[in-house]
Design a binder for these strands. Structure first.
Length: 590
RNA sequence: GACUCCGUAGCUCAGCUGGAUAGAGCGUUCGCCUUCUAAGCGAAUGGUCGCAGGUUCGAGUCCUGCCGGGGUCGCCA
C-alpha cells in the first residue's frame, strides 16, 4: 500500500479529470491546520483559474466524490476553495502496519530510476582534505544512499584531483630534497621500488612548501609546470612517483571518509583518463569544434541566448598542457564507454563556486555528443563558515583539516556524553567510545545535511553536538529511546500487534509516518537532503510527544498496548531507515 | 562592469507548482519526573518576510527597479 497522501492524490486527480480538468490539480498533502483536517487539496482554486470557473463549485464536486473513497472520513470545502480531508482511524491503522512491515519503512521507489554516476570531485592527492571537503563527502554520500534506496543504479566515484600543478610541485620539491632518487634519473626506465619514497606527512609538508615558493618565484612555478608537462608526456620516473603519491594519499583519505561513513565504488582520478586526452582533443578538432587561439586550443561554448559572458573551454593550453576542463571531458568519455551499465546521468557534487566550470564542460560534452548536456548536473553547495561568516579557519588562520575536524567532533561528543552522565553504568570503555563516535558522525553529518544545500552555513560544533534541538544526536537519542522501550516491553512479554488507532497523539504519529516516501523522493528529485532531515526531525518530535502523552509498554489495556508498541516499532523502523540514508547509525543504547 | 546566489523572530534557518492566522531550533519566562531514558514534553515570548512599485480574488513565493552581503568571470584546480 502506498502512502495515504498518494492514494488521496490519485483519487482527487481522477475526480479532476472526471470534470475535464488536469489531474495534477488533485495533489493532496498534509494539512497546514491539523485542527481542521488531516490532509488538504488546494487544486480547485488553481483549476478554477485555469478553466475560468467558480473555485468553490469545483471544490464542492471534488469533495463530494472524495467522500465516497474508502479512506476518507470527511471531505469539506473551506474558504475560497480548500478541500479539507479527514481519514478514518482504520485507514491510519492499516497505514501504520504497512510502514512497520515494509522493507522500505513506507518509502517508495522512484518512477524514473536511472543509471547515475555521482562524482565527488574534490579530494586532492597530497593535499589533506579540509572542511570544504566535508560537504562534498556528506552530501554526495547521502545522495548516493537516497538514489539507491529509490531504485537508481548508482556508481560513485571519488574522482581524485591527481593530475594538476600540485603534482608538479610535489615532484620538483621532492627532487630538491632528495635529488638522488632514481625517479629523477631521466635515463633510468625502471623497475622502480615498490615502497613509496614519501609518507603522508612528507606530502603534507612538500606541497605547501612548493606552493609558497612558486607563488613568490615565477621560475620555481615554471619548473613545476614543466614537470607536469613531462609527466603528462609520460616520463616514467614521474609516473612512478605519481603512483606512489596516489597510493599514499588514498590510504589517508580512506580514514577520513571512513570516519564519516562515506564510501565509493570507484577510486578513480584525473590521471586515469590521461591516455584518452590526445584522442579526445583530436575528436574536437575533427568535429570542427576546436580552434586555435593565442597558442591554445579552445572550444567556444557560448550561445546566443547567454546573458552572461561564457569563456571558452581550454582544451589545450599554450604550453601544450591540459587542465581540468579536458580531464573532466575525458572522464565523461571514459564513463560512457567503459562503465556498465552505461550511465544515463552524472551528478557532480562540487562547490558552488565551480558552477561556471561545469557549465562549460557540460556544453562541450553535449556538443561533441558524449552525452546530452541536460544529463549532466552540477550539485553545488555553499561554504562552511566560521562564526564571523567567512569560510571556516583555524585560530591561526589556516584551513582546518577534515581529520582535525573529525577529531574535534569526536572529543566534543565524548565530553558531552560524559558530562551528561546518562550512559548505563555497565557500559564498557569500548562501547562508550563507539557511542561517542556515532554521536560525532551524527552531529557532523546531520548539521551539514539539514542546511539547504546551496546556502552557506555557520559551523558551530557546540550546537551541532548538542542533544537538544534540531541535531543529529537528538534524532539518535529518540531512536535509542524507542529501542529501549521495545526491549523492556519484550522482556516483560509485551510485543507489538494489531494496530487500532484511537488517540490524537497516535493519529498525528501515523500522519507523520505517512510523509516519509514523499520526503525521500523530494530529496532525491531536488538533490536536497534537508527535505529528508526535516521529515525525520518532525518524526522524532512526533514520537516524543506521543511518548510523553501516552503510556506504551506500561499501558494496561492490551489492545491499546499492542497498538502503541506497533506504532513505536514502526517509528523506530522508519527512523533507522531514514537515518541510515543520512549515513547515521543508531546504537542499541546510550 | 556582467552574471549568479542570498537578505524571513534577538541568533541559526525552513517555507513544496502563488493559497487559510508566515513555521522550526537556540535564547528568554513559566509548568511537568512515585510510570516505559527529563539528552524529554507542554505553554508563553518574539516578525513592517531588505526597500519601493507592479501582476490578481489572493504575493515571503511571480515581474521591474533600488539598497546591502557572498561568489564567479579563457590558459590554477
Amino acid at each position: 500500500m502506498s502512502s495515504l497522501a498518494k492514494e488521496l492524490s490519485a483519487a482527487a486527480g481522477a475526480a479532476f479529470e472526471g470534470m475535464g480538468l488536469e489531474a495534477r490539480f488533485g495533489e493532496v498533502r498534509r494539512s497546514d491546520k491539523p485542527e481542521l483536517a488531516d490532509f488538504q487539496c488546494n487544486g480547485a482554486m488553481a483549476a478554477a483559474k485555469a478553466a475560468g470557473k467558480n473555485p468553490r463549485e469545483i471544490a464542492g464536486e471534488i469533495a463530494a466524490k472524495l467522500k465516497a473513497h474508502a479512506l476518507v472520513l470527511s471531505a469539506e470545502v473551506a474558504g475560497p476553495g480548500f478541500i479539507n480531508l479527514r481519514v478514518s482511524d482504520a485507514a491510519l491503522s492499516a497505514r501504520a502496519e504497512g510502514v512497520r512491515g515494509d522493507a522500505m519503512a513506507g518509502g517508495e521507489k522512484a518512477g524514473d530510476a536511472q543509471v547515475t554516476v555521482i562524482d565527488f570531485g574534490g579530494a586532492n592527492v597530497a593535499k589533506p582534505m579540509h572542511v570544504g571537503h566535508l560537504r562534498s563527502a556528506v552530501i554526495g554520500d547521502t545522495l548516493q544512499r537516497i538514489c539507491r534506496f529509490a531504485g537508481d543504479t548508482v556508481i560513485s566515484d571519488v574522482h581524485l584531483g591527481d593530475w594538476g600543478l600540485q603534482m608538479g610541485h610535489l615532484v620538483t620539491e621532492l627532487e630538491d630534497e632528495q635529488p638522488g632518487l632514481v625517479y629523477f634519473d631521466a635515463a633510468y626506465t625502471g623497475p622502480y621500488p615498490k615502497e613509496p619514497p614519501v609518507t603522508i606527512e612528507d606530502l603534507g609538508r612538500l606541497y605547501p612548501q612548493a606552493s609558497n615558493k612558486a607563488k613568490a618565484d615565477e621560475a620555481r612555478n615554471e619548473r613545476s609546470q614543466k614537470a607536469v608537462a613531462e609527466m603528462q608526456a609520460g616520463r616514467a620516473g614521474y609516473r612512478a612517483l605519481l603512483r606512489h603519491f596516489i597510493d599514499v594519499s588514498v590510504e589517508e583519505l580512506k580514514k577520513d571518509y571512513g570516519f564519516l561513513n562515506v564510501s565509493f565504488d570507484l577510486w578513480k582520478g584525473e590521471s586515469d583518463v590521461d591516455h584518452l586526452i590526445p584522442g579526445l582533443v583530436e575528436r574536437f578538432k575533427q568535429a570542427g569544434l576546436a580552434e586555435e587561439s593565442d597558442g591554445a586550443w579552445i572550444v567556444r561554448v557560448a550561445k546566443d541566448s547567454d546573458k552572461k559572458e561564457m569563456p571558452p573551454v581550454m582544451l589545450v593550453n599554450s604550453r601544450g598542457g591540459t587542465g581540468y576542463h579536458t580531464t573532466d571531458l575525458a572522464t565523461i568519455e571514459d564513463r560512457m564507454e567503459n562503465l556498465t551499465p552505461t550511465p544515463e546521468r552524472m551528478l557532480y557534487v562540487v562547490d558552488q563556486r565551480q558552477a561556471l566550470h561545469f557549465e562549460q564542460v557540460y556544453r562541450a560534452a553535449g556538443m561533441l555528443g558524449l552525452i546530452a548536456e541536460d544529463r549532466l548536473e552540477h550539485i553545488g553547495f555553499g561554504t562552511v563558515n566560521g562564526p564571523d561568516g567567512k569560510p571556516f579557519k583555524t585560530r591561526e588562520g589556516g584551513v582546518l583539516r577534515l581529520a582535525d575536524l573529525n577529531t574535534m567532533a569526536l572529543e566534543e561528543a565524548f565530553r558531552k556524553i560524559e558530562a551528561a552522565g546518562k550512559l548505563p553504568e555497565d557500559m564498557g570503555e569500548e562501547e562508550r567510545f563507539d557511542v561517542a563516535k556515532k554521536v560525532a558522525v551524527a552531529a557532523l553529518r546531520f548539521s551539514d545535511l539539514m542546511n539547504t544545500r546551496t546556502t552557506n552555513y555557520v559551523f558551530d560544533l557546540d550546537r551541532f553536538t548538542s542533544f537538544e534541538g534540531k541535531t543529529g544526536p537528538y534524532l539518535m537519542y529518540a531512536a535509542v529511546r524507542i529501542k529501549s522501550v521495545l526491549r523492556k516491553a519484550a522482556e516483560a512479554g509485551h510485543v507489538p500487534g494489531e494496530v487500532a488507532v484511537t488517540e490524537d497523539a497516535e493519529r498525528a504519529l501515523v500522519l507523520q509516518l505517512d510523509g516519509f516516501g514523499a520526503a525521500v523522493l523530494g530529496a532525491r528529485e531536488k538533490r536536497m537532503p534537508h527535505i529528508l532531515c526535516e521529515h525525520l526531525y518532525n518524526l522524532a518530535q512526533a514520537f516524543s510527544s506521543f511518548y510523553a502523552a501516552l503510556p506504551i509498554a506500561a499501558e494496561t489495556d492490551g489492545a491499546k498496548r499492542v497498538t502503541r508498541l506497533a506504532l513505536a516499532d514502526a517509528v523506530r523502523h522508519q527512523l533507522e531507515t531514514g537515518l541510515d540514508l543520512l549515513g547515521i547509525t543508531v546504537p542499541e543504547r546510550m
